[in-house]
Design a protein around this nucleic acid. Structure first.
Length: 145
DNA sequence: GCCAACGTTGGC
DNA sequence: GCCAACGTTGGC
């Protein structure tokens, strides 16, 4: 299983909207960046990810799971762009802010810090566990600490 | 709202 | 294939 991070501006697509979709999930459409697309192509059903609010909030607010692998992005005719579907799994009890991530030496290599503008990012297992811990979750069981 | 970082486009 | 112009992202 691989871990990822999905950025969304909450006034465009918020965690509340994602949760409202429940287990049906929703297309992660609108990505127009090759690097981000390539990461989505690499995703498998069952992979997990952080849901991050950019621009406003600037924090990891939820945990999602990939529920459909890469397919054409329905919001464009351009065949270059593909996307996965993701569904909300649970809240992060204590949202983890960008400030807190930057302040944590163990997370200094995280793409969130090093590749600011990348909207879909891979997350290393150690980073996954650490951010979950900071948020009040066990990273493997996703049970509250 | 500003602006730095950086990805993309297009002329040459 | 270079690089200037331009557009977008996203932190502040």
């Amino acid at each position: 299983m691989q871990y990822w991070l999905f950025k969304s501006e909450p006034f465009k697509w918020s965690w509340d909207q994602q949760k409202a979709k429940g287990s049906v999930g929703e297309e992660w459409d609108g990505v127009r960046n090759y690097q981000a697309r390539n990461f989505m192509r690499a995703m498998k059903i069952g992979d997990r990810g952080f849901f991050y609010h950019s621009n406003e909030g600037l924090e990891v607010v939820g945990i999602v799971e990939v529920c459909a692998e890469a397919h054409p992005d329905s919001t464009t005719e351009d065949p270059r762009w593909e996307c996965v579907d993701i569904k909300a799994l649970c809240d992060v009890p204590h949202p983890v802010t960008l400030t807190a991530v930057k302040a944590n030496e163990a997370l200094s290599q995280m793409s969130l810090v090093t590749s600011m503008r990348l909207s879909v990012q891979p997350v290393r297992l150690e980073e996954w566990l650490e951010v979950c811990r900071m948020g009040g979750l066990d990273g493997l069981s996703l049970k509250p600490l």
